[in-house]
Design a binder for these strands. Structure first.
Lengths: 198, 198
DNA sequence: ATTGTTCTAGAATTTTATTCTAACTTTTGA
DNA sequence: TCAAAAGTTAGAATAAAATTCTAGAACAAT
């Protein structure tokens, strides 16, 4: 079994951390590799060794972030134990919590996910599949048993979580004053109105 | 009075059109000025004369697109003549119509609006103000008179239009099969559930 | 026609990403 | 324990792209 070196982990972390710092202050494309090197103390060669190219840094950041977020979601859904209302609450609460706990990271992910290239890379596709699977696993039974309204699958996330995402994105960009958690109940209630049976 | 030259308008159009073509095929940052010059027939100097820099092209595209969209919205809202349900329908219908009529443009706008720099430029702020004003002008009276539910202002767009935007964005990226208009009634109904009084 | 302004072309420059090579460090296994 | 292999680092060299610059062409106004 191949053992990862300590120095590798440390260096990667340092670079990703530095990159996140940079991206918090300026647009992704106006941040140069040189700047990331300065902040992280890594050399150009080292950065390219570990990440291949600039895109590689972005992808690593995206992939790690989404994975972390996904795990939080999964855990929250487990605890909801199949109660319809609790599942919806878990979905929205865990999203808000993650964003507020990792604002720089969240901001980066939001700005980066919108690039056409990003969503077609294999690690991201894999995470998307896992996300879908988790959602299905927890909500499909509730829909089948008639405890939640059936909606076209493609529309589900747009109707249920997009409002919270949208607000979070605007909060991170300082376009709105109050944090997402301020309106947590409202977003849950809105999702509930959509998804509850008539 | 300064008269705009014919050649200016034509050249600007040609460049913007070429840029939109390029952006439909590849990511904004992987499209070079040289490519845009080739497609549009303009020289580098000419492009820089008219737009200042690459960002200038993007900003012009964004600004023109949002303005066009805004005008469509304004017109649709006029025709709703203050009927609550009709206003909500106008909001969502005009959005879907515009996206489906201008897919390349819409895709560009969606991908570009998420960059931190974009939203802080003056022309875009101006359009945002106008958008807010139009929404307020048409919905404020309905809320005051108790015919629509009152929601925190900051959350309004997240709850009412974000779901449709989200679905449209995913459709443009070919992540979902059916066009937004397929689910038009659903998105309207969902918005209506949020906004109607109890 | 003349003059000042706007527009165009493309070469020159600058900036930035990426590649490359040689040296250095750590791990492996004999 | 030591030598070979694998992994890591540094920074110079290269490549690719954005931006600037200069001179001249087209145009509008007088």
């Amino acid at each position: 079994m191949k053992q990862e070196r300590l120095s590798t982990r440390i260096r990667r972390r340092a670079v990703l951390e530095a990159a996140l710092d940079c991206f918090a202050e300026a647009d992704v494309e106006s941040v140069s590799i040189a700047e990331i090197c300065d902040r992280s103390g890594a050399s150009v060669g080292s950065v390219y060794h570990h990440f291949g190219n600039k895109e590689g840094i972005l992808l690593a950041l995206l992939s790690d972030g989404l994975t972390a977020h996904l795990e939080a979601l999964e855990q929250a859904l487990e605890q909801a134990e199949g109660h319809p209302r609790a599942c919806i609450e878990a979905l929205i609460d865990s999203l808000i919590q993650w964003v507020e706990a990792n604002p720089r990271w969240a901001q980066f992910i939001y700005s980066y996910l919108n690039r056409s290239g990003a969503s077609s890379s294999e690690p991201i596709l894999e995470i998307n599949r896992r996300y879908k699977q988790i959602i299905e696993q927890h909500f499909e039974p509730l829909i089948q048993s008639g405890r939640l309204r059936e909606l076209p699958t493609d529309c589900w996330s747009s109707l249920i979580v997009a409002p919270t995402h949208d607000y979070a994105r605007r909060w991170l960009r300082q376009q709105v004053r109050h944090s997402p958690s301020t309106h947590q109940r409202l977003f849950i209630e809105a999702a509930w109105r959509i998804v509850q049976c008539d």
